[in-house]
C-alpha cells in the first residue's frame, strides 16, 4: 500500500522520531494519519502499518480497539462529534446531540445513508469554557446553538 507523497514524507519522518529499534512508537500516529487519508483502518491498512512499524496485525488490532478515534469502519465525509460531557451538558450539549441525531436519523457512531455525515457523542474535547462545543472532523465549533447546528448540518449534507 502506498500513500500520497506528503503522507509518505510525514510517515518517513515519523519513523525517525523515535529511538532506533523503537519503530513501534510510530504505530498510533501512523494509524491516525493514514486513517485520515484512507478513511478507516481497513484490514489492508492494518497490515501495512503493522509491517511498517514492525508489529503483528494482532498488535495493531489491540491498539485500534483501544482508541476511540481509530475506526475499523468507514465514517461519513464529515464526522460530526458532539460533546455531551459535564461542561457542555450544563449549557445544552445534550440538546445538540438529540437534535443532530433526530435530524440526521442516525445514532452514535452511525453514518447517514448518503455517507455525508457520521455522528458521534464524544467525551470532553477540551472546549469546556467555550461550551457547548462540537467538532467536525478536526475543526472545533464553540458556543454552538441549535440554529447554528441546524445550518451546519444542512451545509455538510451538501458536501458530497
Amino acid at each position: 500500500m502506498t500513500f500520497s507523497p506528503e503522507l509518505e514524507a510525514r510517515l518517513a519522518k515519523m519513523l525517525e522520531s523515535y529511538p532506533k529499534g523503537r519503530e513501534r512508537a510510530a504505530l498510533i500516529p501512523m494509524l491516525m494519519y493514514t486513517q485520515d487519508e484512507v478513511g478507516h483502518i481497513s484490514k489492508e491498512l492494518a497490515e501495512e502499518v503493522a509491517k511498517r512499524c514492525g508489529v503483528t496485525t494482532l498488535q495493531v488490532e489491540e491498539v485500534v480497539g483501544f482508541y476511540t478515534m481509530l475506526r475499523t469502519k468507514k465514517m461519513g465525509k464529515t464526522h460530526l462529534q458532539i460533546c455531551t460531557n459535564i461542561s457542555c451538558l450544563l449549557v445544552g450539549g445534550d440538546e445538540l446531540w438529540q437534535h443532530a441525531s433526530k435530524k440526521l436519523g442516525i445514532g452514535h457512531n452511525q453514518v447517514t445513508a448518503d455517507g455525508s455525515i457520521s455522528l458521534e457523542e464524544v467525551e470532553c474535547i477540551g472546549a469546556c469554557s467555550w461550551a457547548p462545543a462540537i467538532q467536525t472532523n478536526y475543526d472545533f465549533h464553540h458556543y454552538v446553538t441549535l440554529d447554528q447546528l441546524d445550518k451546519l448540518i444542512d451545509d455538510l449534507r451538501r458536501i458530497q
Partner: peptide
C-alpha cells in the same frame, strides 16, 4: 506525537505505553 482518543493516556504511565505504540 498524536494520541488517538483515550482519557486514560492522561495518566503518565498509560501515556508512556501509548507513546510506545
Amino acid at each position: 506525537h498524536t494520541g488517538a482518543g483515550a482519557y486514560e493516556c492522561g495518566e503518565e504511565s498509560a501515556l508512556l505505553e501509548s507513546l510506545e505504540g
